[in-house]
Amino acid sequence: MTAIRFLVNGAPVELEAPGMRRLLDVLREDLGLTGTKEGCGEGECGACSVILDGEVVVSCLVPACQVDGRIIRTVEGLAARTPDGRILDDLQAAFLATGGAQCGMCTPGMLLSARVYLDAGGGPDEDAIREAIAGNLCRCTGYTKIIEAIALAAETGRRPAGA
């Protein structure tokens, strides 16, 4: 067992865990953050994607010993907390608006890959969006509505405040 400290969605976390425990299991089993899904468990499908120090990674392939001292963002950290409750991230609102989610299994990973893409200045260009989510498999939607959602969020994010 190793003492591991990191930030999840802005909150400090400290736990004792085997160093080779998958970050996916730390999040879901140890911390109860079940928004992160397990799909294939071998780095192929992207369902367990989280943001680690600003980069999207698959949490099934990250051992706990490598997240000590680092910053993690999961789908639970996307919506902003306010005194009046939670305000959905632009991307979440866009997925709702376009029907970008069906069964929901790929959605958290799609949202986080898209978040990193938009934060890096990505725009509504379809080819660029397809490359950004190439590591996230969806078995329901055929991707069209997901791509529409990300393009919509890219447009929303670019609008000046108050517009």
Binding site: G19, R22, G41, E42, G43, C60, P63, C65
Partner: peptide, 27 residues
């Protein structure tokens, strides 16, 4: 050794080959 884990973390699931006995984290 484990670096980025993209191969070794698949091995610990036991689905491809046998898991390692002891690991050295190079990170």
């Amino acid at each position: 050794p484990i670096a980025g884990g993209t191969d070794l973390m698949v091995r610990i699931t036991g689905e491809i080959g046998s898991p390692p006995d002891q690991v050295l984290d190079l990170s």
